[in-house]
Design a protein around this nucleic acid. Structure first.
Lengths: 115, 115
DNA sequence: TGCATAGTTCAAGAATCCTTGTAGTATGCT
DNA sequence: AGCATACTACAAGGATTCTTGAACTATGCA
């Protein structure tokens, strides 16, 4: 992940409805949820929900899969983990004793961590 | 941290220069750096740097302390940790086996983790 | 084939944010 | 006190992003 990708992710999340959608999908986990239910849950019109879901998808934070007439959206844990890793990279010059020594744990997120 | 605070933080970070400043300060850690050096490091004019530093400060991601004629900025680990916690809250409905069981580690960040 | 449902795309106006220069404030030195 | 340095505040133009409704595409069922 480079700086541009990170800015795209952060801009995607820097919006009340999109943040609500993202957190909802984080909570739901791998099974995800169809677009209509997501729209209802966050109080968005179908048009707005579609627009915001596409933004989150483009940023690589969620992904879509068609299931019959529904399109299910689920959080993309790998994208999420890459973003958090990028934000905390080289914390305290790699000398964790400067900040409490636990920052490295931020890198071992959902779906296995390392790499 | 509520949804509005998180959006403020994310919007603050969703900008190339501000993200560069934040990551620089994360890397430097507690000692921080004066505004002028930060401006040079990220290639910003003094005016732009001041503007962006204020944004990050307002969002609670960094904090300023005057040291003589210099104003040093340093990352505010607590604000940073609160944001990461907020983003990963209730991951997979609290059933970490759904996503790899390591998400909880994201909450134990710099400065000692919990609350 | 024809209709209903689920979701997306398009376009235009409105709102917001970014950029930049100039002026101003605070500190330190002589 | 007077001057230089370090940084901040203000303001206006320009660019980007958000919102909304109407039209469009895709799927499933009878």
């Amino acid at each position: 992940m480079d700086s541009k990708d990170a800015v795209t992710c952060l801009a995607a999340l820097a919006h009340e409805q999109r943040l609500a959608i993202f957190r909802l999908l984080v909570k739901i986990g791998p099974p995800g949820s169809p677009a209509g239910e997501i729209a209802d849950a966050v109080g968005a019109t179908p048009t707005a929900a579609s627009f915001h879901l596409k933004e989150l998808d483009r940023a690589g934070l969620i992904h879509a899969t068609r299931a019959g007439r529904y399109i299910r959206y689920a959080v993309h844990f790998d994208g999420m983990r890459r973003l958090l890793t990028f934000l905390t990279e080289d914390c305290c010059q790699g000398r964790p004793e400067l900040c409490g020594s636990t920052i490295k744990k931020a890198r071992t997120l959902c779906k296995g961590g390392s790499k």
